[in-house]
Design a protein around this nucleic acid. Structure first.
Lengths: 124, 124
DNA sequence: CTTGCCAGATTACAGGCGTAGTTTTTGATG
DNA sequence: CATCAAAAACTACGCCTGTAATCTGGCAAG
């Protein structure tokens, strides 16, 4: 139940990119990406199993792992926490912060405008 | 150098709200807020001193603590990390995420539009 | 000069995390 | 039924964190 750690999230990201994966596939994807020994990857998989964040089962002749929680849910809790702690839960101040620190690319700006238009139309 | 922990950030928040503060003031503000014994607050202060995140000095007849890093800098590194890890560093997807999860209040929307107009004018 | 207070350091201790090797269990295969 | 490979659990270990108590050294007051 207690949240997914940084290292564990690397495993999750791999499973969210492509599901399901075998142990072998996880190890050969995530291991090199992070410079981890196979044993380390296995430990992380075990911990995720214990946390009920993933499940393993044999299917189709192989043994596959699947995420039990969605990336959207995870992203939600992660970013909600930051939003609440740092910006009193308000989105605009967060964006304003990025704007002030030159993290707002013109691409972001374009996308944001498109997003806002879309929201307003939907809401209508 | 290693970053400020969650508990430590509570001390920082108090100092950012009002600077400088005496040990006594920190304890009586932050302690009750978090249900911490005075000893706990003192430990956190010590750790922040060791991390060079705050400094203590006698001035004006009292002993006062001041932050050595700005809240803006801290917020920057915290939120940049999340942005990079979860949204490939792009702001728009982050906002889109909040929009999809109904975290975008109409107030946020209004503020965002104002923000965007302002940025466009400034940039012009 | 002595005493006491307070800041800062030291010690404590359990749980989580990063990193990894070793052991056990179990399902499949011969 | 016996064996084997692979999954899962167990063991390890040092560091960080949350939580807290105690020790110590220096400055201030008497």
């Amino acid at each position: 139940m207690q949240s997914i750690s940084e290292a564990e999230s690397r495993i999750m990201e791999a499973l969210w990119r492509k599901t399901p994966l075998t142990a072998e596939q996880i190890i050969s994807t995530v291991g090199p990406e992070n410079g981890w020994a196979p044993a380390t990857v296995k430990t992380l998989v075990t911990r995720l199993l214990k946390k009920n964040a993933i499940a393993g089962a044999k299917e189709d002749g192989g043994y596959f792992y699947r995420p039990l929680i969605s990336r959207a849910d995870w992203v939600q809790s992660e970013s909600q926490g930051l939003l609440d702690r740092l910006f009193k839960g308000e989105v605009a101040p967060l964006v304003a912060h990025f704007a002030e620190h030159r993290q707002l690319s013109s691409k972001d700006l374009r996308q944001l405008k498109a997003l806002i238009s879309k929201i307003e139309e939907d809401g209508k």
